[in-house]
Design a binder for these strands. Structure first.
Lengths: 210, 210, 210, 210
DNA sequence: AATGAATGAGTCTTCATTCAT
DNA sequence: CATGAATGAAGACTCATTCAT
């Protein structure tokens, strides 16, 4: 029974943490980390300021909390891994679709933390390791393999992979900036990217011939 | 004589403004807008706090000042315009080189303001119009023309252009995040991107044949 | 219970506000609005600077707070109303006594805000309406009635009433200026004024005769 | 010649001082001592900030300058002295007229300094001696004499004199407060006051009889 | 565990004053 | 003498954090 109670307690704690983080993401996304006040977050979460400090060590810790939650939410690793067997074009489309959806879902949380992440060295480090480097390494591995198999032309693998990742980072920034083309065309992004990245802009002879 | 004096005075004012903005960019890039104090900026600029306020209306105005200076520095418009006659491959390489150099030069200033730009609606709007939209429109125009000429395959022009811009935004973020591959491979970025964007990842039959 | 708690809470808030306003009046009266610092007020009130701002929106709001409190304290309206039936001489003596006492009691608060009231257009307006105009209108009404009844000789009612009010304003300023005659003779003021105002300085024939 | 030059120089200095004090009075009257900035005064005077400090030791010294100028302007002493021989009623009317005119002329300067005078102990002292006490003593002397002669009924001389002075102080405050009755009826004040003060409000038997 | 009043360190900003030109 | 840029001390105000209830 004690075990069951502990379980319930843990669930309650987790629920309260999420309740606070949801509110935090909302407020941070709207006003930014520094202009958001703990009082405001408390109000948005429907709790008191004191309660926030029962679940998080500090205001800065809320950023960490959001980052962690984003990471948990993010199963790119597994999904990517699953698609690693596919042919490149399918793989990229699948990967792009996945990213595009993740960004849509995590927009608020990501927008909430990105400016702060770009500002604080520690967050930068942590964010880079969790979100950029891990994926970069997987992609590098995949591309390198495919290059060896002749499915992808020989390229500067690290930079090419960074360019791919950069597109999504950049598109996300475009969304924050309110670019209409990106916001309204978001669903088409995976295919457009697949064409761009996979086929290139240069028209192919056989296509011209065809 | 009064005219000459005015001229000198204006130059002094401009020099002082730049002196302050240089220091500001340094401090903002290091600590971020909010953690940077006016006292710190003053010290870095070698002036008193009061002097800052003789040249800028507020701390926030320093961000605007940096943004304006970036825009003045930025002659992409003209350079792009000059390359608009070139064949696509040359055009893109030239454009990429240009961007890559601008980012290297403006890194500090850009890093100083980006997080704040992402946070403040007004700055966002202003930044988007000055740095994103203007260039997007020029690129769209170019790409559209080339598509009509058959030099570029038919693509979703707005999104493709956003994707191109996004790459640089994203790569810049990667630099802030300290990604080694991007930082150390920066000089190779234009060519890698040209290959990626123009030729695509998919190996071409004739190349395979060759 | 919630209602009871609310009641207690409100009382606590009111008590804290008064505690702060008392200290504020003291410090303002001594140093004036601008030379008084919030730190000093906080110390005098035995709270922290932050606490002041939990109860008042700004330093300027403290002036408003004092003014409001003065107005609440001030029941001249009712007392005047009560005396409105009396014969003029009794009425004036009663009214003068009342004013004289109010000034003595409210000296600190009044001295605290008067210079600022004379300076700020908004406060001026507000002060004038609460303290001057309301009473002027009541007095005018009374005097006009008594003139009609023949109990008061025909006079320029508005100006006469202003003159009466002015005496108290002026005497209060005299107190601030430290005039010994006014300070030490304060208790005699009502009677002296009654004689002055009601009988005039000119000796009366019958009195001379008597 | 050197003497003549000195004379011219002195006149220039005096003119410049007055130019500055005029502007100061205007700005102080409008914004109050503390909210007025030296920059603003300089602009209003058509000189630079530095120039102000060539003629006055400090911002506070400008108040002293205005007070001194008011005192020079003010020849009440002499005029009062001249009227001291008159019968009471004529004397008071003359004195009241004089005061009323002085206030109208000196309104701006007086309004400029009064709030500050009420606030600063030193100014208070100085103001009290120059403007209040001197006149009070003269009035006391006059009234006392007239009482002895039987021209004025026996009264509490010091308080009566203070009350008389207070009326003008109070009326001046009323003007600052923007009271319409006082502002628009200003020309009638001397007569109204003469009636009020000299004859009193109480109707006289013989008048009733008449 | 939740509350929210109290805290006070920290910061932007103002502005009287100085002084080199 | 006049100027006005530079100064920097001072102060109102904010807000993350604590803790008694």
């Amino acid at each position: 029974m004690s075990a069951a109670q502990d379980h319930i307690r843990e669930q309650l704690i987790e629920a309260r943490r999420n309740q606070i983080l949801d509110a935090t993401a909302k407020v941070f996304a709207e006003k930014g980390f520094h202009r958001a006040t703990t009082k405001e977050i408390a109000r948005a979460a429907g709790v008191s300021e004191g309660t926030i400090y029962n679940y998080f060590a500090s205001k800065a810790d809320l950023v960490v909390g959001i980052m962690t939650r984003l990471a948990e939410l993010d199963a790119l690793g597994e999904e990517l891994a699953g698609a690693l067997q596919s042919e490149p074009r399918e793989f990229f489309i699948a990967a792009f679709r996945h990213r595009v959806n993740r960004i849509r879902q995590g927009q608020e949380m990501l927008q909430a933390i990105l400016p702060e992440v770009l500002t604080s060295p520690e967050l930068r480090e942590s964010f880079y390791r969790q979100y950029v480097l891990r994926i970069a390494e997987m992609l590098e591995q995949y591309v390198r393999t495919r290059v060896e198999l002749g499915d992808i032309r020989p390229v500067n693998v690290p930079l090419t992979v960074r360019a791919l990742q950069s597109i999504f980072v950049g598109l996300f920034v475009m969304r924050i900036l309110g670019d209409e083309a990106v916001l309204s065309g978001w669903d088409d992004v995976p295919e457009v990217l697949a064409t761009l990245i996979f086929d290139g802009l240069c028209p192919r002879p056989e296509e011209v011939a065809g």
